[in-house]
């Protein structure tokens, strides 16, 4: 189990700005997250109508994974994501509407792993999915779990990271762990890349 893995690519979304491998690729002066996402959608000419049905967490995960997966030929790429708020932003929506008009379109998003399903559908990935919830970014667990998937050949690559959305506050840091890349797959690298887009 002494395989060496690397970070092939990474992305961030914070404060109405999107970065790919540390370079800003889009920023917007939007009043809220929804209009920021709409502006990004137009900017990248995504042409994917389902995007507008997604809840904020799925939009965030979808938009952060897009630059990483668009040119990724490896379909056995596992998805492993983590956050603090789970699906609480949508949970509160369902909680306030469930007495009068509970909506299946809202309820289905009251699970954090739905965002993994959305990414799997878009990029046609029949791969491993897991969603974990932690109090804060937890590189050690992500690191060991990604290595476990790669060592056991359950996946050729692993797209992992942190996608948290609550009260308009959004924080995404995603990265692909692979057998080749620029940065060593280590806790030090993960901590450093998470801090600075």
């Amino acid at each position: 189990m002494a395989n060496d893995y690397f970070i092939q690519a990474y992305s961030h979304i914070r404060n109405n700005q999107i970065w790919h491998n540390g370079e800003s690729i889009f920023t917007a002066d939007s009043a809220d997250f929804s209009s920021f996402m709409k502006a990004a959608y137009k900017h990248f000419a995504l042409d994917y109508g389902k995007f507008f049905k997604m809840d904020s967490l799925s939009k965030l995960a979808f938009m952060a994974s897009n630059p990483l997966l668009n040119d990724e030929p490896e379909k056995n790429t596992a998805l492993v994501m983590t956050n603090k708020a789970g699906s609480l932003d949508t949970d509160r929506k369902h909680q306030t509407t469930m007495n009068d008009y509970p909506s299946p379109a809202v309820f289905v998003y009251t699970l954090p792993n739905i965002c993994l399903g959305e990414i799997s559908i878009k990029h046609q990935l029949y791969s491993e999915n897991a969603f974990f919830v932690f109090d804060s970014f937890n590189p050690s667990t992500l690191h060991d779990y990604a290595n476990a998937l790669l060592d056991s050949k359950k996946a050729e690559k692993v797209l992992c990271g942190w996608v948290d959305f609550e009260h308009q506050k959004h924080d995404a840091f995603l990265y692909i762990v692979s057998k080749s890349g620029t940065f060593e797959h280590s806790l030090e690298t993960l901590n450093r890349l998470y801090q600075t887009p």
Binding site: F132, D151, S152
Partner: peptide, 24 residues
């Protein structure tokens, strides 16, 4: 480690436990 992966969570949690043990 809290796993929240819809209705597969319970059996996936067993798999995740095995993976962490395999990983040392």
């Amino acid at each position: 480690v809290v796993l929240s992966n819809a209705c597969v969570s319970g059996v996936l949690a067993v798999a995740v436990a095995k993976r962490f043990i395999d990983q040392g």
